[in-house]
């Protein structure tokens, strides 16, 4: 695909450098502290004193992080799949159909995003208890689906709305059923939106702390965000381990994105955007 490059090469290079430095600096700090032998005493040094993997070993061995990573992966992937499916259906409804209460529905869906989550901790905890959802990864997944749904619906609504109606109508003219049109026209066209939404759902589920902590009773069901907190004591912190754990938390999200990025590109080529 050929893109119009109005910037001269030098500007582009500088831009790339600026984006990389700004985006990566905190991550650089995190990783370099995680491998620093003297992590707690790093101060303002830009480069770690010496290299070690001992913080990672501690996090994985004593911290039990492998288990937390697995739990988080189950919860996050579950959240992504379910919320993408459910949200896409709802997005089509609000973007493509006119019906009474449509706008009210849109506001209602968004309304639940507006409540500070911290205020919901106790009511949602009691609700989950009544629904027998406590202490189970499935229950936590459903809660995270609820957290990411409002976002996902709105997001996908934008992408569905951006698909010109004429494209759909052309399909109808050609005799396709609604279901067929949905699968072969709409879905490929909104694929980039589904990708962006999935990334969001994934991160929501991956990094959430307070609900994971309160909902799960067995420590072997904890997710990575709870696991990270193990390295903060009451009045002390184990910085090397905190940063090593944070690195382990960050990596899978990036891997998830790199994998899904290819789909973003293929979603494009499968779609109808090329003339």
């Amino acid at each position: 695909m050929r893109r119009k490059g109005a910037l001269p090469a030098i500007g582009r290079t500088l831009g790339v450098i600026a984006v990389l430095v700004f985006a990566l600096f905190p991550a650089y700090w995190m990783i370099s502290t995680a491998v620093d032998t003297d992590a707690a005493r790093r101060g303002a040094a830009l480069v770690p004193t010496a290299f070690t993997l001992s913080h990672f070993e501690r996090v994985l061995d004593d911290g039990g992080f492998a288990l937390f990573l697995r739990n988080s992966a189950i919860v996050a992937v579950g959240t992504v799949v379910v919320s993408a499916l459910v949200a896409l259906l709802a997005a089509v409804a609000v973007a493509r159909f006119t019906f009474s209460f449509r706008k009210a529905m849109l506001v209602l869906i968004l309304l639940v995003q507006m409540v500070p989550l911290e205020a919901l901790v106790i009511p949602l905890f009691l609700q989950a208890r009544n629904l027998q959802m406590l202490n189970s990864l499935l229950g936590l997944t459903i809660v995270y689906v609820a957290f990411s749904l409002p976002f996902a619906v709105w997001m996908l609504r934008g992408f569905v709305a951006a698909v010109p109606k004429e494209v759909e109508e052309a399909a109808y003219v050609d005799g396709a059923s609604w279901g067929r049109m949905f699968r072969s026209i709409l879905l490929p066209l909104v694929a980039p939106g589904v990708v962006a939404t999935s990334v969001f759902s994934f991160i929501t589920a991956w990094n959430e702390f307070i609900f994971a902590l309160t909902f799960l009773q067995d420590a072997d069901k904890y997710t990575v965000a709870v696991g990270l907190q193990r390295f903060f004591g009451q009045n002390t912190a184990d910085w090397g381990a905190v940063m090593a754990a944070s690195t382990l938390i960050t990596l899978p999200v990036v891997v998830f994105f790199v994998i899904i990025q290819r789909r973003l590109a293929s979603g494009l080529s499968a779609g109808a955007v090329k003339g």
Binding site: V121, I122, F125, L126, R129, L134, F209, I210, L213, T214, Q217, D218, A219, V226, Q229, R230, F232, G233, Q234
Partner: peptide, 22 residues
């Protein structure tokens, strides 16, 4: 079950409210 200090008070409070204390 080991509990992290961060959020521990919240965890006690929700468990007391929900009757899910140890």
């Amino acid at each position: 079950q080991f509990q992290p200090w961060a959020g521990a008070h919240d965890k006690f409070v929700t468990s007391i409210a929900g009757g899910t204390v140890p």
